[in-house]
């Protein structure tokens, strides 16, 4: 398998804050790679570095054979970037936005028209093609944004939190489109805060925490580190007990319950492991510990995953 992205020792500091602290990444061509992490972990910075928008303080990267430092224009010619905020021209129509991309990719008038029509059709934007963007919904803007990224048929597509801020239906449409891209053989590098999203499409997942890769593997491998289910027990007065990861078998559940000396009236429930669980398992600190050791960043990170706040990275 050939490598689409190879990065070694990427470091980025903003003043005294270390955003990336020696990140290595390997993405095989034609695969989907998910970079998973809480807000502020450095995901967007990693994408911005690989997409030539930000220069790393140190480290090297090669994308589809083009060296990031020596041949940034070469890198730009093989990548497409869709960020968290729709990068569209609000004063133009959807079709004009796509034509702009076709012209900047030097596709030529005939090929440009063909490609624009094809993408409008594929992204279900044909009807709205000649309407100003002010009339577009959030989901339509994201679709247009992704369509613009694909005008040049990039070998490597970066999707930086492609579903943040979308309603469930638009989210679903987005993943359908991503699956089509995968079928077309593009290499996809996506970032997300949600384990289940990575789980659904990614071949490999790396977990980024405070600028470091703390775990990497297939989604299954990562989840197996925390068990397949989490057992929750609440005492009758409502006090929650510490959560117990289990392996999803009856025996596992029975053993876990047996180990609890508890009130028979305690309330039990099961839930799937979340990013928090994987995250805590990988960083080796339990949620309860984190709050007592005064590891404030961990705690903040963990709680931020639940909030739907947008990422505040530079």
């Amino acid at each position: 398998m050939t490598a689409a992205i190879t990065a070694r020792g990427l470091v980025k500091r903003y003043r005294d804050r270390v955003v990336l602290d020696g990140v290595d990444l390997d993405v095989a061509a034609g695969t989907v790679f998910a970079l998973l992490g809480p807000n502020g972990a450095g995901k967007t910075t990693a994408v911005h570095i690989l997409a030539t928008l930000v220069r790393p303080d140190s480290g090297t990267a090669v994308l589809a054979g083009h060296n990031l430092a020596q041949d940034p224009q070469g890198v730009r010619s093989v990548i497409g970037l869709t960020g968290q905020f729709a990068a569209v021209d609000n004063l133009l129509t959807g079709e004009e936005n796509l034509r702009l991309m076709a012209d900047l990719r030097h596709l030529g008038p005939r090929e440009g028209r063909r490609r624009v029509a094809e993408l409008l059709e594929r992204f279900d934007l044909t009807q709205a093609a000649r309407k100003p963007l002010a009339t577009y919904s959030g989901g339509m803007r994201r679709r247009l944004d992704l369509a613009m990224t694909l005008v040049g048929t990039p070998q490597i597509v970066f999707l930086d939190e492609p579903t943040t801020g979308l309603d469930p239906r638009s989210r679903q449409t987005m993943w359908d489109i991503v699956r089509e891209l995968i079928a077309d053989g593009a290499t996809i590098f996506l970032t997300t805060q949600y384990l289940d999203e990575a789980d659904r499409v990614a071949d490999r997942v790396a977990v980024l925490d405070r600028g470091r890769i703390v775990g990497e593997g297939t989604p299954g491998e990562l989840k197996s580190r925390v068990g397949t289910e989490v057992l929750l027990i609440k005492d009758p007065d409502g006090t929650p007990r510490p959560e117990i990861p289990i392996d999803g078998t009856v025996r596992g559940l029975r053993d876990a319950l047996a180990a609890v000396d508890g009130d028979p009236a305690a309330v039990v429930s099961l839930r799937a492991p979340s990013l928090d669980d994987v995250f805590f398992a990988l960083t080796g600190s339990a949620a309860s510990e984190a709050s007592t050791v005064g590891a404030a960043p961990t705690l903040t990170n963990a709680s931020a995953t639940d909030a739907s706040s947008t990422e505040e990275e530079a």
Partner: peptide, 13 residues
Amino acid sequence: TEGIVARFRSMAV
């Protein structure tokens, strides 16, 4: 202030 310039910069423009 809009994302479009970041897009231009990530393209071979």
